[in-house]
Design a protein around this nucleic acid. Structure first.
Lengths: 230, 230
DNA sequence: GAAATTATTAAATCAAACCTTAAGAAAAGC
DNA sequence: GCTTTTCTTAAGGTTTGATTTAATAATTTC
């Protein structure tokens, strides 16, 4: 039920892309950065996106071109983010199927508000705010403080470990394939041949075990992935 | 719950003024239309406003002139709404103390979002009232006097340093990501690779340390942000 | 039981995040 | 205008976490 909302961010300027990603993330969505038009097209063909943010001036393939492709393909909302101030550019984009148009330099709050409102218009998808606290069995996570306690003991996790646990705990019972997990936590594509996940999972399990040896929290679904034991 | 937020709308075109009023109203604020510069000045002298929207081309008295008056008078947020597309006009307005600049034709949602975001930025000053005093451990902050004492010693902080400490102290335990912190203190977007936060944090820590070497106040949560040690 | 997949562990390397200092730039105060 | 304060930038150094590697152990599936 609580599926992640994935937003593709097409912007060649690295700093701005990073900023947009952080805005998206902070609103509770999942950003995926693309740094050129051609890179973006690869992701667009790969899967469905809940929203696309497009910078108009791009290397490889213009933003206008991408907008065409996206709108031709279907019903994915698009927000243009551009330095082009001319009304004509704005009108073209909106006529061309964009849902909104933000000019640079933009205001952080504004971007956030527009993304929310756009997703709302597209219906169904309610904006879920970060909960004050998640509990599962005797695991308690307070996102605001990035704090985790298990069995009433504080568990000190690194950022990665925290992200993993947070993901699993936020939908107990759901099986996360390694690739899913990797892409969510690391925000980069998963190339299969990686032991990193195993090691990190091991660390998480260890720390959970230290806090409460009587309980097994993370279960391995053989050949499929991991989930919180329910 | 909130007392009403009054917004003065200075726009000579009756239709546009009506539209702006309805936008403001729909956002839950209280609009007051003014149709000329001179009329606006009367209202401005009468009372305090939570925000002013100004059209630049006005009969009676130019928008630029009004902007001067408003900013000279105090800390009321101003949004310029204008048909003037030139960057120069925009720059002049923003330099002159305007908080935002929207070009006509404008998007209803955009105006609404910008008003919201602007009020939010000004929030501390106009809407929410500050507590008389914040205490945490042996830190005492008196916001009205911008005064900080630690361990009963007065600590002299610069404006930025004060803002940082204030933010952290006002919700101890909460982890502030660098981006959050930066945006709240500097009021501008954070582009990731900046160490001015580090430097300022270092300064704050130093000063706290000088006042009380036995206590560690600000904790670094690696990869996540900073928080008051609890 | 054999093969494939996953776990665990520790050590070594690497990279990112962070801290501090100092000096130049900008702003504020006199 | 000059001085002082504050802010920012840059550079070098430190710490911490992430990753890789590898060797061994445990599971599951067939």
């Amino acid at each position: 039920m609580n599926e992640s909302i994935d937003i593709l961010i097409i912007e060649d300027d690295e700093a701005i892309n990073r900023l947009l990603c952080s805005i998206v993330k902070r609103s509770g969505y999942h950003p995926k950065p693309a740094y050129s038009g051609t890179e973006a097209m690869i992701y667009l063909e790969q899967r469905r996106w809940d929203m696309v943010l497009i910078d108009l001036m791009l290397p490889g393939m213009s933003g206008e071109r991408i907008l065409e492709e996206v709108t031709a393909a279907g019903d994915c909302p698009v927000i243009i983010i551009s330095a082009k101030l001319e009304t004509q550019s704005k009108i073209n984009a909106l006529r061309g199927g964009a849902d909104d148009y933000i000019t640079k330099p933009f205001d952080v709050e504004e971007v956030s508000a527009r993304i929310d409102s756009c997703l709302r218009r597209y219906g169904g998808r309610t904006v879920e705010k970060q909960p004050a606290e998640i509990n599962y069995k005797d695991i308690r996570i307070v996102p605001e403080a990035k704090q985790v306690t298990v069995n009433n003991k504080t568990v000190k996790l690194t950022a990665r470990e925290y992200d993993i646990l947070y993901l699993l705990v936020s939908s107990p019972g759901k099986v996360y394939a390694k690739a899913d997990l990797f892409e969510r936590v690391w925000n980069e594509p998963y190339y299969g041949d990686d032991n990193t996940i195993n090691v990190h999972l091991s660390h998480v399990r260890n720390k959970l075990y230290e806090a409460n040896p009587d309980e097994t929290y993370i279960e391995t679904i053989w050949g499929m992935g991991y989930k919180m034991n329910s």
